[in-house]
């Protein structure tokens, strides 16, 4: 069923803002309501912005008054810095989701709920299979941080869909989103002049282009796709390979020192690194997107490699080893070789 009135949470951040503008531009959607605690930066078209906190029961009034039929919950945040500390982040993620779902449960107009989750809930360990499918459980339950929040959020979403079986519930587990205008811990990390890596490990990364993230979210809102879906670009990229493609220099750090270094970096507000990301930097993670392609019917337009190259092209990287320079040096050496040979034979 096509939505007529859409509510989007987390519109102050790039993905939420993009989703809201797409719906605002859609003539078949009558009303788009954006909710966040801080006003969005850009122009969201004719989106009505409601400055509200989803931790507050007030959100129920907004949903009821506007007769919202589709709710996109994009406000599960990954970074404590942006939220103002870990406890605030947990409040927004967990309590906010609970309040929002409670409001949806009371509202008879709601027919569809789409929740942005993360592949972080699969964790990262040496005992992981190469690719996670949607049915797989993490090897160890997440102990804290973003992945624990996402795990709890998904638990509440499952409870909601049990209580309101008439509502189409889609849980989209996104991998790291990279793209123009996206500012995430991973993009900041890859933009560092020297990229610290865990000594002796080379994780597999999987990226999702922000355009594909937008495409999946809009498709989920316009069509009916109940269930849980992994969303990621095809293929994987090794961290060492990413560092090389970006022309950066890696700085291998022994794993006990990584957390210390991360805390230092966090204190300097350069990068939001938390200890739970250590596992990811050592073991990486990749997910299977067969269900997204076959059941959901969306094939990501960008592979992981293309996404990363797009990201590198988009940002002027300082102190980078230029790819063309390397090629030129190689050609020069080959030319010298050929010339020497010519001299030798004649």
């Amino acid at each position: 069923m096509r939505p007529r009135c859409v509510l989007v949470t987390g519109v102050s951040r790039p993905l939420g803002a993009q989703v809201a503008s797409v719906f605002a531009a859609d003539p078949e959607i009558e009303n788009v309501i954006g909710v966040d605690t801080i006003p969005p930066h850009g122009d969201l078209g004719c989106t009505q912005f409601v400055r509200a906190d989803i931790r507050n029961p007030l959100i129920a009034k907004v949903i009821g008054a506007a007769a919202v039929d589709t709710v996109l919950h994009l406000n599960v945040i990954a970074t404590p810095l942006g939220a103002g500390g870990r406890s605030a982040m947990k409040e927004i993620n967990v309590i906010g989701t609970m309040q929002l779902l409670a409001a949806c449960q009371k509202a008879p107009s709601v027919t569809k709920v789409i929740v942005k989750s993360t592949t972080t809930i699969y964790g990262s360990s040496p005992r992981d299979p190469a690719l996670f499918t949607e049915e797989m459980e993490p090897r160890a339950l997440p102990r804290g941080g973003y992945s624990k929040d996402a795990f709890e959020v998904e638990g509440y979403v499952r409870g909601f869909s049990r209580r309101r079986p008439d509502v189409t519930v889609s849980v989209l587990r996104f991998t790291n989103i990279v793209g123009p205008g996206i500012d995430s811990p991973l993009t900041r990390y890859l933009e560092l002049p020297v990229v610290p890596t865990v000594l002796g490990f080379d994780p597999r990364l999987q990226l999702l282009h922000s355009e594909d993230a937008l495409g999946v979210l809009t498709r989920a809102a316009i069509e009916d796709h109940p269930g849980t879906f992994n969303v990621a670009g095809d293929g994987v990229l090794l961290l060492s390979q990413a560092v090389r493609r970006a022309g950066r220099a890696p700085l291998p750090v022994p794993s006990p020192a990584v957390v210390t270094l991360g805390n230092l970096v966090r204190r300097s507000r350069l990068l939001d690194f938390s200890a739970e990301q250590l596992g990811f930097l050592a073991h990486g993670r990749a997910v299977d997107t067969t269900r997204l392609k076959q059941v959901f019917g969306y094939v990501p337009r960008f592979t992981t490699l293309e996404t990363f190259d797009d990201f590198v092209r988009d940002r002027p990287m300082r102190f980078a080893i230029d790819r063309e320079t390397v090629i030129r040096v190689e050609r020069g050496l080959l030319g010298v070789l050929a010339r020497r040979r010519l001299v030798g034979t004649s």
Partner: peptide, 26 residues
């Protein structure tokens, strides 16, 4: 946040304009 404020950020022709812009961008 004790009260919800509704702020209209754009007009109907604003919608058309951003729509076209979004298309061009994509």
């Amino acid at each position: 946040m004790s009260e919800a404020r509704i702020i209209q950020l754009g007009s109907k022709d604003g919608r058309a304009r951003t729509g076209a812009a979004a298309q061009r961008r994509s």
